[in-house]
Design a protein around this nucleic acid. Structure first.
Length: 579
RNA sequence: GUCCCCUUAGUGCAGCGGUCAGCACAUCAGAUUCUCAGUCUGAGAACAGGGGUUCGAGUCCCCUAGGGGAUGCCA
């Protein structure tokens, strides 16, 4: 046994929402740490000044919290919400943007040792090099003959061009022993002298990751496979510093059902399509200006309305342009009315809003690229900790199957609802969180007691949105209720039809009912059915239609309780009085 | 261009030299319930192609094809 404690980390960059694939990586990191009694750490890789945003940082932290991905060291969520980059843990700061001196001191060590040098090619020059590379040429950057390691000399020679630092890649074969990919040798000629400090002074990912993982005592680097080919860079850097390499484990990628990368581009495209359509409908006074106004009132953004209009105009014109701010995109989607069902789900928050249960998502994403090998699929988070191992992680890309997730969701919710009081309570809490996330104040306002009855009555739901949908008519004011004509006709409830008499009969039974509880209501109505010699199924759908206007609602008895005596009488009498 | 990885039913996985190739989701059929859902029972459905190695290959090796990743002053 090794004495080293297991420490894993998840290191997102706050340039967008938490992607479902990122959540998978984070969760497996956490599972591995927990399994070995170690710690899971969160580090924020905010070195991309152009794309970072505070809002996406908060979003990521919220999403992790919602999923239950708490960490032993990392950002202080409350402080971040207040706008401070505060964190907790002994190896901080956990924001890379606050670790600049550390990186610079390590870069200086390399410079002093002649293992790094200054460079000042422009992006255009480098692109041209790659373009024009012949079959036998080196691809991209070529190491210069004279290596400049003195800052002043570099400044002079660069002659005004921005200066960066490149790592002098050693001419040795790099061996990587990956826990998933197996042992692999990377020949030196495939590595060129990569940049370690950008001209804006920020370290590159490849550099910061090595320094941080080492200083933060990360024992296992578990990350997506897209990083595998870059691992020799990290190992080369570790060798240069004489630092031990952590263990690596590269997880297969997650793709959507079409086998493509799940990207925010997909979402963007859909929103763009609807936005164009919306702007085409001039009658409603729809213009880019009004869109910008509405978006601005929906989200807090620093941009002026004019700036926003310009940005949106450019976005609409260029099919390849993706809006950088997720919240703006969401707001536009709301304004132009993109139906929920049409919005591609790729971020954790999308699944939250669609009505998924966090534990079901965790269960499902754990199986994206990993399997216990036993055939068991349904796990609670605690069982996953027990079962997880890196050996069973596959190298094959995983495909995201929403239908299976839905099925997992149903199973988890069903299991909870047939479990003890504590598990039922978890469902209540989760359902309330859902209602909050979609802004359904009306349902949230009915109180815990009624929400419990509702959940019990709608057992077997797939998503919380199903519960919400079916409960809608029960809690609508009578004035908003609409009656589905087809349903009315089907049940023979039109004026003069026989169904109305039966309904009137039940109405009277209910009117005389003192005890407005499920068992009593059931007993009374069943007794009446017995007298009349009819079955429940002859009358229940009629009551349902009169009560909700639709043929679909929760079971009858709880529905009556939820609407309440007054509401029921008002609805039934009102329906019977109608022409 | 170069390097790396992958390929079992529609989808996700299991299999790690000898299985009637197993499971789940989805699909279809039947049963059950006051609707929807759920639940229960059953059915159809796969080793990318070609060479080897071996008594024996989905499993090991090679080639081909297809998919993916990397090769960025993104992470």
């Amino acid at each position: 046994m090794t004495a080293t404690t297991v420490r894993t980390r998840f290191a997102p960059s706050p340039t967008g929402s938490l992607h479902i694939g990122g959540a998978r990586t984070a969760f497996l990191c956490k599972l591995f740490a927990k399994k070995h009694g170690g710690d899971f750490i969160l580090r924020i890789e905010d070195t991309d000044q152009a794309r970072n945003s505070a809002e996406s940082l908060i979003g990521i932290l919220d999403d992790m919290k919602w999923l239950g991905l708490d960490f032993a060291e990392g950002p202080d969520i409350e402080a971040v919400r207040r706008g401070e980059l505060k964190d907790f843990g002994p190896y901080g700061p956990y924001f890379q943007s606050q670790r600049l001196e550390i990186y610079n001191s390590y870069i200086q060590k390399l410079l002093d040792a002649g293992r790094a040098y200054f460079a000042w090619e422009t992006p255009e020059e480098l692109a041209a090099l790659r373009q024009n590379a012949g079959p036998d040429d080196a691809y991209g950057h070529v190491r210069p003959k004279h290596l400049v390691t003195d800052a002043n000399e570099a400044k002079r020679l660069a002659n005004g061009k921005p200066v960066m630092v490149r790592f002098l890649v050693p001419d040795v074969q790099i061996h990587v022993d990956d826990l998933v990919m197996g042992p692999t040798d990377f020949p030196p000629e495939h590595l060129n002298d990569f940049v370690i400090r950008k001209s804006d002074g920020m370290p590159t990912y490849h550099f910061a990751v090595v320094v941080d993982d080492s200083l933060m005592r990360i024992s296992h680097v578990i990350r997506a496979q897209e990083h595998f080919s870059n691992t020799p860079k990290h190992v080369a850097l570790q060798m240069a510093f004489g630092l031990p390499s952590p263990q690596f484990a590269h997880l297969p990628l997650v793709f959507n059902s079409q086998g493509k990368k799940m990207s925010k581009r997909e979402k963007d495209k859909v929103v763009k399509r609807f936005a164009k359509k919306w702007l085409g409908e001039k009658e409603g006074g729809n213009s880019i200006g009004s869109l910008a106004d509405k978006v601005k009132s929906a989200v807090k953004i620093a941009d002026t309305a004019d700036a926003l209009v310009k940005q949106v105009e450019a976005w609409l014109k260029d099919p390849d342009l993706v809006l950088p701010q997720g919240t703006v995109r969401e707001a536009i989607a709301d304004v132009v009315g993109v139906p929920i069902a049409e919005r591609p789900e790729i971020d954790v928050s999308d699944f939250k809003k669609a009505g998924f249960y966090a534990e079901a998502i965790l269960n499902y994403i754990a199986l994206l690229g990993w399997s216990p090998g036993t055939g068991k699929e349904i796990f609670t988070p605690a069982e996953l900790v027990e079962a997880f191992n890196l050996e069973q992680v596959s190298k094959t890309n995983a495909r995201f199957d929403r239908k299976k997730l839905v099925s997992f969701n149903l199973t988890h919710c069903n299991d909870d609802m047939s479990g003890d009081a504590g598990r039922k309570e978890k469902q209540l809490v989760a359902f309330k969180q859902y209602l909050e996330s979609v802004g359904n104040a009306r349902l949230a306002g009915i109180g815990d007691a009624k929400l419990r009855i509702l959940l019990e009555a709608k057992k077997g739901w797939r998503l919380y949105s199903d519960v919400e949908k079916v409960a809608g008519p029960l809690f609508m004011p009578l004035s908003e209720l609409t009656y589905d004509e087809g349903a009315v006709a089907k049940e023979g409830l039109r004026k003069g039809e026989a169904g109305r008499e039966l309904l009137a009969g039940v109405t009277e039974v209910l009117r005389g009912q003192k005890d407005w509880e499920e068992p009593a209501l059931e007993a009374a109505v069943m007794a009446w059915c017995g007298e009349k010699g009819i079955e429940l199924k002859e009358i229940a759908p009629k009551v349902r239609v009169a009560l909700t206007g639709t043929t679909v609602s929760p079971a009858l008895w709880p529905s009556l309780v939820l609407v309440g005596r007054e509401g029921v009488m008002e609805r039934l009498d009102g329906f019977l009085a109608k022409g």
